[in-house]
Each structure stands twice: as structure tokens, then as C-alpha cells.
Design a protein around this nucleic acid. Structure first.
Length: 876
RNA sequence: GGGCGCAUAGCUCAGUGGAAGAGCACUCGCCUUACAAGCGAGGGGUCGGGGGUUCGAAACCCUCUGCGCCCACCA
């Protein structure tokens, strides 16, 4: 840290910024200070309007990956802005117990460290171990969130398995049960043969796998019928063969029986609409206990359900295949059939869709079992309507279609899981088989009753998150103040898992009041090549690594800058580095301002220079645009806008324009200090939600105030807009850039001061800026012995004559002029072509025609000028 | 099998009817006292192919090709 005496700056304890920006030094102490100051803890009794966001609860055993970092960045950005705007802001943190995922992790650890299974420990001890594991790994996530700067209210931290949320789960289960919206039934469900539990439809991932299609002849002679299957082993459980009722080929067989090979059982041939006569032979084997379609056919025809596998997918049918795994049994059955002369055809490989457990990738086994279901028809209808009638807005709107497709076609939701980690189903059974659903604060009828051993799907409790976390079913002050939540920010990949379920339950439990007003969906974070990040690909990144190397602000800025609504974004270390450079730029600009006595508290003088009016005009225009972009959740655009405004306009131009003013002293310096202070103050405030740490350090140094976290959101003062000043400074910029180009082409060193005469500044309206133009382009006044060695023209008016103390590089100048000439010629041709088109003149709007005319005139003038200049060049 | 989306500079992406853009990468010149994590200047694209609508298309329509994603109980 260096100190410097600065008598101009307002008295402030913190106007000292180290000469070097070191993110770790800046970010380290700030977060805990914010938490201790209570900035993130809202008051449920205040009069301020509420703004509520609940965190998408991360899996308690996990660590935050880059995708979470995106979620958190966007939520933190929204909530910090609203806090500055005067809302009572609650960002509620918490974690999800993540049933299968967590149980699998702990089981794996148990096997690795102690060589034991959960069954060795018993249910009670195993669950105790999971809690222990939760306590250890939950801390990691909290630590990551602090590093990211998440402005969450830790006093309201929740966990899906904590006491209050468990009560919510039990309450809603009972309510649904009493309303006949939860039922228990024996159905074909998706069964993971490794996790030993039922799965809901969306926990199954389909992929096209290589398999086989085997055609088997059932029966003999005239009664023979050929069926095709990819799962030959299930024929052991066949209880019928089905054909289409209109299929002439088999009409004579319908109602007859055929002998099932290998078993000697006789099974009926039935007619069912489901069968597609054009597929294969038009006949299908029916295995009601092991295929969802077959189950349906079985129901329609009163067929028995013959289960031939246990929960491990091991064959239980008596005979030679007993005890074989399903994948062992398949070739064994085919072999036996072949020996029996029953195989008509074999196609291998046969590619077809196979379902896999989304948690462990094991092939899912359709299994007949007794499970609990939510009857979704009415709930899903409501959930769809809430979006259809506009109570809930989905951003971007294109993704609403995906939501509708799902809720409008949702099957009943299997919610029971044969796990130990989760909310136990609150239903008890008597030895006589009676059943009772027990609500919170209720007891089962007697000591001989036993509780259902299954637990609920994790997403059942996640679906309650927007209100269970606020105290529901109790009518708490938080619930009254903060429900419905304002916006839900999450990835489009969990629309079905989570968003839709919250809609179902929120509307149901809260009397039709939606769980959130807006769903803002973002995409997935991919690697620098746009590839999906995955452990197997080895392209995942730990956000902590990037935060360590470049700072949290840089990580956040990079993520926000890539976040276009609903679309995936690439990320890479170079981009985080670029974002860090931006923070560094802000740092140095603020240092410059402080070194020069910028005063953020000063009133803006009424007498302002064109440069001052220009930057103020741009600032307030940008502030208005940022507000607009926030309303549309266009994080990438607003971040990019601020990036370019801060860097290109404030740093590259305004600061450079300010230097001579500051050096001039007196009123001019005073005015510039006030404007510089004004601009930086607003800039740091408007950037704070995205880059909270560096803006806090800089803003407090600049203003001497307590914290930018609680500063007022900068208002766009549209009265500051000044098109004339903007035009004037833009003209100045063009002049300076053109002169610099000439210098660069001529190989003049940037530091080399060159005498020059400027003619025609008046015509461009920048005569008043001659000193500025000279200082920015390093041109000295023309002296007594001035000899022009070269000229450059800007537009048609301005001529700059240089004395380069020698000859100019004629070849370089010729190249430059010829290039400009070619551009002017192209421009002339393009525009004269348009004006030569009668249809264009007749149909294009006047404004467009006028513009084209102007451009043609300018191009023609440029052509004449450039030709003259070229002609005047000494021949090479 | 159905649905959706994408194809613009070497890479990753903005740009929804009136002059082709950004970041990174690249070339040249600079330690010009806020910043070399920087400054100045520059090169680079017949906007995937073909057809159509229009005075005018990267943008709207059709079609082809190539990717990507989601959904799915055709054995």
C-alpha cells in the first residue's frame, strides 16, 4: 500500500488504493463484513416491497460446479440490484438431501473405507452416517458461496430434511392423500436393478444401444406364430401372444392357445389394438409383469402377471435359467430356443432405445410393484394454466413450449423410493392390513402399526421449496411477506424435475397462488469449445480454481457476460482472465480519479465542457439501457454494454480528455473532478451487482461512505442526454483517430511530437477542441520554420499538414490513399446504384433515400479529394 | 418415431428488413507517469448450399446439407 498526500480529495479514511489490483486482497475481508452488518438479512415486518429468490438447492454431498456459479451469479446480481432499489430482499439459501445421489455417495464411501454395505449397518445407523456426512460436506458449499459473494440470508438457511421442511412434506402428503390425489397401486414402474428402487419417468435416460432382435416361433404347424423380441429372456413370463384385431393373417388364431416354448405352458392368442400389424410379423409376445405395454394389454384381457425376476433382475422362474442375471439369461434362452429349433431369425446388432438409471446408468427394468403415485391430471392442468394465463412468465418465452409439452402430457408421478435416505412415507399399516395416513402432530393408531418403509422422491420435497422454506404450513410472517417468490433462476435442464413440480405443489398448497412470478432460465455452461462439461471428458472446472487465480468478481463477470437467456454458453480461463483485466481497469481508473481529486459528492456545475456533457449523456443513456435489459434478464447484453462503456468511453476517451483539464487547474479542474466523481460513482454502483467486491473497495474509497451494498441504485437522469455534445465529441474522436492512423502508417512513434497545422476544424464543429486534439494526437503547433511534408484529410474539410522533419513514406501513404479510394469507390457505386433504381426511389421511405443521397455525396467528395491527393504525391 | 434449436471473422458468440459486429487469437508500433492485466493503429467474413418474397434479406418463407438438444411404452 502506498500513501500519498492529497489535499484535494474529500476527507475519507479509505482513499488509498494499492497501486496493484490483487483480487484476493480486495475480496478477502469484505464478505464477512457484509454478513455481520446484516445487509443480507431482511425484515419481514418492513413496509418495503419484497423481492424474494430461493436458491436452487444444491445436493448436500456435492460441491458447487461452474453451473451453480452461474446460477448464483445471476441471482446475486438480481437481488443486489433490487436491494439497492429499496426492496426488502430475501435470497434464501439451503440444500437438498438428494435421496438417491446422496445415498449412493455414502454407500460408496462405506464400501471403500469399511468394506460394508448399508445393510451391514442397518437403517438407523446408516441414516445417522448420512447425517454425519451432510454436516461435513455441507460446509464446503457454504464456503464456496461466501467466496462467490452470494448475498444470502444465512439466518434463514434451510435443508430439505430439517424439521420444518419435514413437517411441510408430511402436511402436503396428508392433504394430497385426503384429497385422493395420492394413491398406492401395483403398477409397472421403472426399476433400477442396482439402486434397488423405483424411479420416476424423468429419472430414466434413454439411449440408442446395440441389442438384438430375435424372432421366435411359438406353436407348430398351422397354429405356429412368430414373435420378435429384443428381450428373449422375458418369454419365460409370457402369458399371451397378441395380434391386431383386423389382421387377416391371424384372425383364425385369435381365441386359440399356443404352447410357449421351453416351458410347455399354453398361452392364449388375443387381439389388441395396440399391436402394429406392419411391424415384424405383426404378432407380439405379451409379458405383463415386465413391460409397460404388455401390462396394459394384460389388463385389457385379464391376463395373469407372471413375475420372473427379483429386485436384482435375477431370474426367479423355475427351470434351467433360475438364478441367472437377466443379461446372462438372455443368450442362454436364445441358445435353448435355437437348440429347440424355435429361432426363425436373429438380427444383431439391433439398435433400439434403452432406458438407463440417470444416477448409475444401469439398464432400467420395468417392474411390477406396489408403489405410491401422485395423481397429476388436475394439478398439472393448473400448472399449465398458470403460465397460459400469464400469472407466471417464463423467460425466454420459447422455453414455455417445452414446459407445456411436459405438464400437458404428464403421467402419474411415482413418488415412492425403496431407499433409506429421505422423507419416510407417513402411512402406517396394521397387522390386519389397514392403512392410515398420519399427519404432523398425529400418532399412528396403535403400537402394533408399522410405518411404510419407503421414502419419497427427492423432488417431492424440492417441489415445496418456495413455501416450505418460509415456514409453511405455519402462517409465518416470512410466508406472508415473501411468498410468492419474485423470480426463479435456474437452468433449463431442470424445468421438468423442479420447476414444474414447484408449480404443481405451489398452486395446490397455496390456494392457487403461484410459487414465483417469473421463471428466468439460463443455459448450461460449456467449455471453451462449446462442448458439454463432464467428468469423463475431463473438461470440468472447479470455480474455486478460477476464483483463486482471477478473483470472484472476474468469474462472475465472465459468467454474466456469457448468459444469454435460455442458451448455453462457453467459458474458458482466457475469458476469466479478460474479466479480471476489466476489474483491473476499473481499479486503475478509480486510482487515477482519486489521485486527481475526483469528488463524487460535489454538485455538478452548470457550466460543463462538451466532453463533460458528452460523458454524462452517455452515462445516463447507458443507465437507462441497463435498467431495460435487467427487466428482460439480458445479463450478457447489459454486462457487455457496461464493459464497453466503462472501458471504451470512460477510460479510453473521457479520462484522456480530462487530463488536460485537470492539469489546467482552477474551475476547469474543479468541474472535471466533479464530473469524474459523478461518472465513476454511478458506474461503480451500476456494476456492483455483477462485480460486488471490487466495486465495494473502489466505491468506498471514492466516496468515503459505508458500503455500496446499501447504496442507492443509480437513476438514469434522462435530462442529461445531449445529442449535440455526443455529435461534437464523436467528431473529435474521428479526427483524432484519423490523425493517429496517418501517424501509424507513417511510422511515427507514439511519443514523437510532430509540428502540424490544422485547417478546417471549424467546418467540423470542433474548433474549440484544437488543444485537446493536439494533445491526444501529439501534434505541436506549427512554428516559424514549419514546412509541410505531408497532409491527411478528415472528411472533406479538415486538412492536417505535418512537418515530419523529413520526407514522408510515399509508398505507405500511397497504399493508404488507395485503400481509402477503393472504399470510397465501392461506397459510391453502391449508393448511386440504389438511386438509379426507380423502384427504390418510389418505395423506400424518404429518410432512407435521403440517407443514401448523403452518402453518395460524401463518397463523391472523398473520391475527388483522394484522387487529388494521390496525384499530388511525388512519384515513387 | 416425434418436437425444438443452431449454422455470421481462426475460436466462442451478439446482431429479427435499410451502410457486416464484439471478446479472444493475429499483424505492426509503443514501458505516452491510472493501468504492459496496458496504449495506439491494422488485417481478416460472397453471414452453410439452393430457391423464393421485397425497391432492399445475415435477418422473412421453402428446400437441401451438417450439427446439437429434448421428448418417446413400437415388440
Amino acid at each position: 500500500m502506498t500513501t500519498h498526500p492529497d489535499t484535494q480529495a474529500p476527507p475519507s479514511p479509505s482513499t488509498e488504493l494499492s497501486t496493484k489490483y490483487t483480487p484476493a486482497d480486495v475480496e478477502g475481508p469484505l464478505y464477512e463484513r457484509w454478513v455481520e452488518a446484516g445487509y443480507f438479512t431482511p425484515d419481514a415486518t418492513s413496509d418495503k416491497p419484497p423481492f424474494t429468490v430461493v436458491i436452487p438447492p444444491p445436493n448436500v454431498t456435492g460441491v458447487l460446479h461452474i453451473g451453480h456459479a452461474l446460477d448464483h451469479t445471476l441471482i446475486d446480481t438480481l437481488t443486489r440490484r433490487r436491494r439497492m432499489q429499496g426492496y426488502e430482499v430475501l435470497w434464501l439459501p439451503g440444500m437438498d438431501h438428494a435421496g438417491i445421489a446422496t445415498q449412493n455417495v455414502v454407500e460408496r464411501e462405506l464400501a471403500k473405507n469399511e468394506g460394508k454395505s448399508r445393510h451391514d449397518l442397518g437403517r438407523e445407523e446408516f441414516v445417522r452416517r448420512v447425517w454425519q456426512w451432510k454436516d461435513e460436506s455441507g460446509g464446503k458449499i457454504a464456503g464456496q458461496m461466501r467466496r462467490l459473494g452470494d448475498g444470502v440470508d444465512w439466518t434463514r438457511d434451510r435443508f430439505t430434511m430439517d424439521e420444518g421442511l419435514s413437517k411441510s412434506v408430511q402436511t402436503i402428503f396428508k392433504k394430497l392423500y385426503d384429497d385422493d390425489l395420492i394413491y398406492r397401486a401395483e403398477r409397472i414402474i421403472n426399476w433400477c436393478a442396482r439402486c434397488h428402487t423405483a424411479l420416476s419417468d424423468i429419472e430414466v435416460e434413454h439411449s440408442d444401444d446395440d441389442g438384438e432382435l430375435v424372432s421366435i416361433r411359438y406353436g407348430d404347424g398351422e397354429n405356429a406364430i412368430v414373435v420378435a423380441t429384443t428381450r428373449a429372456e422375458t418369454m419365460l413370463g409370457d402369458t399371451a401372444v397378441a395380434v391386431h384385431p383386423d389382421d387377416e393373417r391371424y384372425r383364425h388364431l385369435v381365441g386359440t392357445e399356443v404352447e410357449l416354448p421351453l416351458t410347455g405352458r399354453r398361452i392364449p392368442i388375443v387381439a389388441d389394438e395396440h399391436v402394429d400389424p406392419s411391424f415384424g410379423t405383426g404378432a407380439v409376445k405379451v409379458t405383463p409383469a415386465h413391460d409397460p405395454n404388455d401390462f396394459e394389454i394384460g389388463q385389457r384381457h385379464g391376463l395373469p402377471n407372471l413375475t420372473i425376476m427379483d429386485e436384482k433382475a435375477v431370474i426367479t422362474a423355475h427351470g434351467p435359467f433360475f438364478g441367472m442375471d437377466r443379461f446372462e439369461a438372455r443368450p442362454a434362452v436364445v441358445r435353448a430356443l435355437r437348440e429347440d429349433g424355435r429361432i426363425v431369425a436373429e438380427k444383431r446388432p439391433y439398435v433400439h432405445a434403452v432406458g438407463h438409471c440417470s444416477r448409475c446408468d444401469t439398464v432400467v427394468e420395468p417392474r411390477l410393484s406396489l408403489q405410491w403415485f401422485v395423481k397429476v391430471e388436475t394439478l398439472a392442468k393448473e400448472a399449465g394454466d398458470a403460465v397460459r394465463d400469464g400469472r407466471v412468465a417464463i423467460h425466454p418465452p420459447e422455453l414455455a413450449k417445452r414446459y407445456f409439452d411436459w405438464v400437458d402430457n404428464m403421467h402419474d408421478w411415482c413418488i415412492s423410493r425403496q431407499l433409506w435416505w429421505g422423507h419416510r412415507i407417513p402411512v402406517w399399516y396394521s397387522p390386519q392390513g389397514e392403512m392410515v395416513c398420519v399427519g404432523p402432530d398425529e400418532q399412528p393408531p396403535g403400537p402394533e402399526w408399522t410405518q411404510d418403509s419407503d421414502v419419497l422422491d427427492t423432488w417431492f420435497s424440492s417441489g415445496l421449496w418456495p413455501f416450505s422454506t418460509l415456514g409453511w404450513p405455519d402462517q409465518t410472517a416470512d410466508l406472508a411477506k415473501f411468498y410468492p417468490t419474485s423470480v426463479l433462476v435456474t437452468g433449463y435442464d431442470i424445468i421438468f424435475f423442479w420447476v414444474a413440480r414447484m408449480m404443481l405443489f405451489g398452486l395446490y398448497a397455496m390456494d392457487g397462488k403461484q410459487p414465483f412470478d417469473v421463471v428466468a432460465l439460463h443455459g448450461l455452461v460449456r467449455d471453451k469449445y462449446g462442448k458439454k462439461m463432464s467428468k469423463s471428458r475431463g473438461n470440468t472446472v472447479d470455480p474455486l480454481d478460477w476464483m483463486d487465480a482471477y478473483g470472484s468478481d472476474a468469474l462472475r463477470f465472465m459468467l454474466a457476460r456469457g448468459a444469454n437467456p435460455g442458451s448455453d454458453q462457453a467459458s474458458s480461463e482466457e475469458w476469466v482472465a479478460g474479466a479480471r483485466n476489466f476489474c483491473n481497469k476499473l481499479w486503475n481508473a478509480t486510482r487515477f480519479a482519486l489521485l486527481n481529486g475526483a469528488d463524487a459528492s460535489a454538485e455538478l456545475p452548470s457550466e460543463l465542457s462538451p466532453a463533460d456533457r458528452w460523458i454524462l449523456s452517455r452515462l445516463h443513456t447507458v443507465l437507462a439501457e441497463v435498467d431495460d435489459l435487467y427487466e428482460r434478464y439480458e445479463f450478457a447484453k447489459l454486462t457487455d454494454l457496461l464493459y464497453h462503456f466503462a472501458w471504451d468511453e470512460v477510460c479510453d476517451w473521457y479520462v484522456e480528455l480530462a487530463k488536460p483539464e485537470l492539469a489546467a487547474g482552477g474551475t476547469r479542474a474543479q468541474t472535471t473532478r466533479a464530473v469524474l466523481g459523478h461518472v465513476l460513482d454511478r458506474l461503480l454502483r451500476v456494476l456492483h451487482p455483477v462485480t460486488p467486491f471490487v466495486t465495494e473497495a473502489l466505491w468506498t474509497a471514492l466516496t468515503g461512505k459505508e458500503s455500496v451494498v446499501i447504496a442507492e441504485w443509480p437513476k438514469a437522469e434522462l435530462g442529461r442526454r445531449d445529442p449535440a455534445a455526443e455529435a461534437e465529441i464523436e467528431a473529435l474522436q474521428r479526427v483524432v483517430t484519423e490523425i493517429r492512423r496517418f501517424r501509424s502508417d507513417q511510422g511515427l512513434k507514439p511519443t514523437q511530437r510532430v509540428p502540424a497545422r490544422l485547417d478546417g476544424l471549424d467546418a467540423l464543429g470542433v474548433a474549440a477542441h484544437e488543444t485537446l486534439i493536439r494533445s491526444l494526437s501529439r501534434l505541436d503547433p506549427a512554428g516559424e520554420d514549419f514546412t509541410a511534408t505531408g497532409t491527411v484529410q478528415v472528411g472533406a474539410e479538415l486538412t492536417v499538414s505535418f512537418d515530419t522533419s523529413g520526407t514522408i513514406d510515399v509508398a505507405a501513404e500511397r497504399r493508404r490513399l488507395e485503400k481509402d479510394l477503393a472504399a470510397a469507390e465501392k461506397e459510391r457505386a453502391q449508393n448511386s446504384g440504389k438511386l438509379g433504381n426507380d423502384a427504390f426511389l418510389a418505395k423506400a421511405p424518404d429518410a432512407v433515400v435521403a440517407k443514401v443521397r448523403e452518402r453518395l455525396t460524401a463518397a463523391e467528395a472523398d473520391l475527388a479529394r483522394l484522387e487529388a491527393q494521390l496525384a499530388a504525391l511525388p512519384s515513387a
